[in-house]
Design a binder for these strands. Structure first.
Length: 668
RNA sequence: GGGGUUGUAGCUCAGUCGGUUAGAGUGCCAGCCUGUCACGCUGGAAGUCGCGGGUUCGAGCCCCGUCAGCCCCGCCA
């Protein structure tokens, strides 16, 4: 095979994100020899070498893992489009390490991407793709930069237990049964919160851990049941000390995404965040603010809005002003789309008012003339005075669009908070297409960091009719609000802060309670009595009574952070083996049923066998009118019987829960 | 738990008003070509239209149910 020209650059080296990999073996000198290993996925049939020496490989040529040895030489026909297009490897040896079946999903980056369920099922192949390779490397870099940063700042890296104690409050725990102590359970940590506080009591003044956390709650694009946090805790600090430390880390991380972070980041009180942006994690890439226009409708004939104005602040009318001709000409169809999404967020409708320039001739002809380009869903209540007042109040002198929401602060914030960003994004995208400057609405290239501070200490929980800790029950109340702990918990502020980046909460933390007395008051406020507190958190109260230092910290969501640095909108793209929205792993099929023996050892009884036995009883005493369904049941195939089935009985569709169980069938 | 959306060849998708034998690209297989590098040319195989019912003379298309993926609400101290 010597001197067999073998243009390696043409294949998997490229496929693999291979420019960098090729560089490791393709030196600039044209006379160096070396060995290289690589995969050849989907070895192109048309380019399959014809020489006899290659024939032997053809049965397994679909996708190969191979190694080649040869001499790097300058190519006769160079390809300027490839990083290594100037050189080729003149083979002296070629080994096929392993044949491969045709991949079920494309692993080339060019061309189509398979559906996500297939990508997840064959994650080991999906991970070969450049995009995911890059994301995984980025994630590793983020972790390394983080560890180095904190090490440089005298932090100590800890490992805290994964098998721990279930605690009340917060998310649902993942439970792990104890074999040694039948009937007792460990809980996987929702976060190592208590451990990191206890380590402060122990005198480790700077704690860092990159650790797994587990919460048994429903998933979102930015939420997995097991996820990774960068946990930080420090003694003798105020919130600005913690924030400065984290800002320093962001300064080092941002360059990984060719961005910069410029501390100090904006500090925005929670109250203002909700008032101006309708969110506790505002996306400041969009500068537009929500404004209160309730008073303008005080004497209006427009009942919907006037009622709010008469409600003494119970309900308000709030609005967002989108400036510009583009916004003013928003079509009815598009507005309907916005209204639909507003409705899914709980709005009754989406009142609007727009001043556009171009009006369609046909609509004017239909008598729907819009003089001055004015159009509104409540036009008949819109007096010239009101129009002028709105223009003045919203500082809306020219063309543009106003969207209104009416209701409680919660309702209007949710609707306008969502639309503010959504519409700004699409206006900016449209502006970009028409080569206009999109910046007034949305700067998609920005990295908009901010701190949201002064969170409330408590939230009122309707379901349980009591206050719950907004952040967690170890959060220090604001020094000025200590007496509100008992007097008016709802108004009590916390020394808690969230780090927000581009509309995502990437981190949250607080200054903790460091004395047992305040901690007890806190537990009382959320309905945890002395006895229960003693029982569940005795170790913490003990620890706090032995000279615990003032301390505080923060946890960063590593997955979200890497997601934003990678420029993707889903954390599955930055997790090697993620779960689906239904908290399932399509590759391993976890979670799965386990052996009866395993359950017995844990003294755990599965409900399914019990259901089956109930079925047997049912069969034995079956009344005549149920003979028919039973006969239908007997005809079900194994597949059909694996879940819920339907059958037609006397003209009616009947739903039947069926469970497949191992063992003898009905006939036996 | 609720709402929305998607499911057709290995993969990505099209499929009209319900009407003949369900198509395209890509991949796969075979042959030809060879300095190609998303090579090119010719031919071929490949479909439980997610699954189960129903309506109809007739269903990929309509109805009911169900499963799975995705997004959102609830939930996530």
């Amino acid at each position: 095979m010597a001197n067999c020209a073998f243009p390696m650059q043409a294949r998997r080296c490229v496929w693999w994100g291979g420019a960098a990999r090729c560089a490791t073996w393709a030196p600039s000198s044209s006379s160096t020899s070396g060995t290289v290993g690589a995969w050849c996925s989907s070895w192109p049939t048309r380019r399959r070498p014809r020489r006899n020496s290659w024939r032997a490989y053809r049965p397994c040529a679909a996708s190969l893992c191979w190694g080649a040895e040869g001499v790097v030489a300058e190519r006769e026909a160079k390809n300027p489009n490839l990083a290594t297009g100037d050189v080729e490897l003149r083979l002296t040896d070629l080994k096929i390490f392993n044949a491969a079946a045709t991949p079920p999903i494309p692993v080339e980056d060019a061309g189509n991407e398979a559906n996500e369920d297939l990508r997840l099922k064959y994650r080991f192949l999906d991970l070969r793709r450049d995009k995911l390779q890059r994301n995984m490397v980025l994630r590793s870099e983020v972790a390394n930069v983080t560890r180095n940063y904190f090490r440089k700042n005298d932090f100590i890296d800890f490992e805290t237990p994964i098998l721990g104690r279930s605690t009340p409050e917060g998310a649902r725990d993942y439970l792990v049964p104890s074999r040694v102590h039948p009937g007792d359970f460990f809980a996987l940590p929702q976060s190592p919160q208590l451990y990191k506080q206890l380590l402060q009591v122990s005198g480790f003044e700077r704690y860092i851990q990159i650790c797994r956390c587990f919460r048994d709650e429903d998933l979102r694009a930015d939420r997995q049941p097991d996820f990774t946090q960068i946990e930080v805790e420090m003694s003798f600090v105020r919130q600005q000390d913690v924030q400065a430390m984290i800002e320093g880390l962001m300064v080092e991380l941002a360059p990984l995404a060719d961005q910069t972070a410029q501390p100090p980041f904006l500090r925005l009180p929670f109250k203002d965040a909700m008032e101006w942006y309708g969110s506790d994690k505002p996306d400041l890439r969009c500068p537009l603010k929500i404004q209160d226009v309730t008073e303008l409708f005080a004497g209006s004939d427009f009942n919907l809005f006037r009622v709010a104005a008469d409600s003494h602040g119970q309900r308000r009318v709030r609005a967002v002003w989108f400036p510009g001709e583009e916004a003013g000409n928003t079509s009815r169809k598009v507005l309907d789309g916005y209204q639909e999404s507003a409705k899914t967020l709980g709005a009754g409708g989406l009142p609007y008012l727009k001043w556009g320039k171009s009006q369609s001739v046909s609509r004017i002809a239909e008598g729907d003339a819009e003089k001055d380009g004015l159009s509104s869903s409540f036009k008949k209540f819109l007096t010239p005075a009101l129009e002028a007042a709105l223009r003045d109040h919203l500082q809306a002198p020219n063309e543009g669009l106003i969207l209104f929401a009416v209701g409680t602060d919660d309702q209007t914030s949710r609707v306008l908070g969502d639309l503010r960003v959504r519409i700004a994004k699409s206006l900016a995208a449209a502006a970009e297409l028409s080569k206009a400057d999109p910046t007034p609405w949305f700067d998609k290239n920005a990295f908009a960091f901010l701190w949201v501070v002064d969170f409330p200490l408590f939230d009122w929980n309707e379901e349980n009719q009591r206050f719950v800790a907004c952040h967690h029950p170890f959060t220090s109340p604001h020094a000025d609000d200590m007496e509100l702990l008992e007097a008016n918990p709802g108004a009590c502020r916390a020394v808690a802060y969230d780090l927000v980046l581009n509309g995502y909460e990437v981190g949250g933390g607080s200054i903790r309670i460091h004395d047992a007395d305040t901690q007890s008051r806190m537990f009382r406020a959320i309905g945890i009595g002395e006895t229960e507190a003693r029982e569940k958190f005795g170790f913490l109260l003990d620890a706090l009574s032995y000279g615990a230092p003032p301390h505080g910290g923060l946890a960063l969501g590593l997955d979200r952070l890497v997601m934003l640095l990678a420029g993707v909108d889903n954390i599955r793209e930055v997790i090697a083996f993620p779960k689906t929205a239904q908290a399932r792993c399509l590759m391993t099929d976890a979670p799965n049923a386990v052996d009866a023996k395993q359950l017995r050892e844990l003294r755990i009884q599965s409900e399914q066998p019990q259901q089956y036995r109930a079925g047997v009883m049912f069969f034995e005493s079956v009344p005549a009118e149920l003979q028919a369904p039973i006969s239908v049941l007997r005809t079900l195939s194994m597949n059909q019987a694996s879940s819920t089935s339907t059958m037609v009985l006397d003209g009616e569709i009947v739903k039947v829960e069926t469970t497949r169980i191992p063992g003898p069938g009905f006939e036996d």
